[in-house]
């Protein structure tokens, strides 16, 4: 929506209508949805239990839990934003999370490498895996959907093969567990990690040449080539970065659960893609913002965790199913609303 509105707006547009345009911006609408969601859950999901303690959605603990539980999916969504901006997709990030978790576990437990070394090697493995995707997509010009469908299976398969499916690495030292379970300055440690990555990706996408190149490639790869954009280099960077961030998510995941196993991150790619698309990034590429992705992640996380705090839902014992249903509905509604708003804007402009 971002590129759309900037292209349409001209200096002659009156001030009042600029306001309206701003209000109709997708991110603002999504923010409104998020606020409404939050207030509803705050209202209906906060209770005082019989020990006289305020519990539920409205507590700080609860809010921190939401942060902690959505960190890995949030990281994957950030990783996918540049990729989807280029008109590509990466279905393999969830499997790569699993593979990296197992690699990290193996490096620390089997080879006995010190933690920092193991962590760096894990990130490198993530980069290499992203490089495989990038190589197949850029060098052989294969469709990203199919390439990453293949590596989705391949990475998970390698994780299972390495561990023969069964080995679970646990007993990590306390210093490592801090990453996923501790707090720093009163806030969960992984929230800081997430913040740093979010700022990094935001700057990359919105303040550098690469960011513009992603959009141009997404609009028209051919046009990008004529405009002098190094398409291969930019695409490679996007997929390799996705691999590195997925590896980072694997570290956070292993630390939060205190275990590394081949099934880590199973199905996370779907949540991450959902968050990116809900955030207003076009699945065809060329259009989208990091802010939108962050809002998308937040909207889904609040919905999922908020539902679980509602007494009614708890008594139904169906938080996960309801969250799935509502996320699907929210995604469709958001897309349809965006489409209708666009049509309306076009017809009122013309």
């Amino acid at each position: 929506m971002d590129a759309e509105s900037t292209r349409v707006s001209t200096p002659t547009v009156a001030r009042a209508s600029t306001w309206r345009r701003w209000l109709l911006r997708y991110e603002v609408l999504l923010l409104a949805v998020l606020v409404v969601e939050w207030l509803l859950f705050y209202h209906f999901g906060t209770t005082t239990n019989r020990r006289g303690v305020t519990v539920g959605f409205g507590t700080l603990d609860r809010q921190f839990d939401i942060l902690r539980h959505s960190c890995e999916i949030g990281l994957l969504a950030l990783a996918l934003t540049p990729v989807i901006l280029t008109g590509g997709i990466d279905l393999s990030v969830g499997s790569l999370l699993g593979l990296c978790a197992v690699v990290f576990g193996g490096l620390t437990h089997v080879l006995g490498l010190p933690l920092p070394v193991a962590a760096v090697v894990t990130l490198l493995v993530g980069a290499a895996a992203g490089g495989i995707n990038a190589g197949l997509i850029c060098q052989l010009r294969l469709p990203p959907l199919i390439v990453t469908l293949g590596t989705y299976s391949l990475f998970r398969g390698l994780a299972e093969a390495f561990t023969r499916g069964s080995v679970t690495y646990s007993d990590f030292p306390a210093s490592f567990l801090t990453l996923g379970q501790g707090r720093w300055a009163g806030i969960p440690v992984q929230a800081w990690v997430f913040l740093i990555v979010a700022v990094g990706v935001w700057v990359w996408v919105h303040r550098t040449f690469s960011g513009r190149a992603f959009r141009v490639i997404g609009f028209s790869p051919e046009g990008a080539r004529y405009a002098g954009v190094g398409v291969r280099g930019q695409l490679t960077a996007a997929y390799v970065a996705a691999g590195v961030i997925a590896a980072l998510a694997a570290l956070v995941y292993s630390s939060r659960l205190g275990q590394a196993k081949a099934d880590a991150g199973l199905g996370y790619e779907l949540f991450a893609i959902t968050a990116v698309v809900l955030g207003g990034t076009s699945i065809f590429g060329g259009r989208g913002t990091v802010t939108g992705t962050l809002l998308g992640v937040a909207a889904i996380a609040v919905l999922k965790n908020g539902l679980a705090t509602l007494p009614v839902v708890m008594r139904m014992n169906a938080a996960e199913e309801l969250a799935g249903l509502l996320t699907g509905a929210l995604l469709l509604a958001a897309l349809a609303a965006g489409k209708l708003a666009e049509r309306w804007r076009r017809s009122s402009a013309g």
């Binding site: 209770t47 939060r256 659960l257 205190g258 679980a308 708890m314 938080a319 996960e320």
Partner: peptide, 28 residues
């Protein structure tokens, strides 16, 4: 295992009196 942890943490904030768990992952 990850979802089991989330559910337990939900229950903690709800303030139930007893939790009975069939653990998927012992340490986790």
């Amino acid at each position: 295992a990850a979802k089991q942890n989330e559910i337990v943490e939900n229950w903690i904030t709800l303030g139930v009196d007893v939790i009975a768990v069939a653990a998927e992952n012992r340490e986790g």
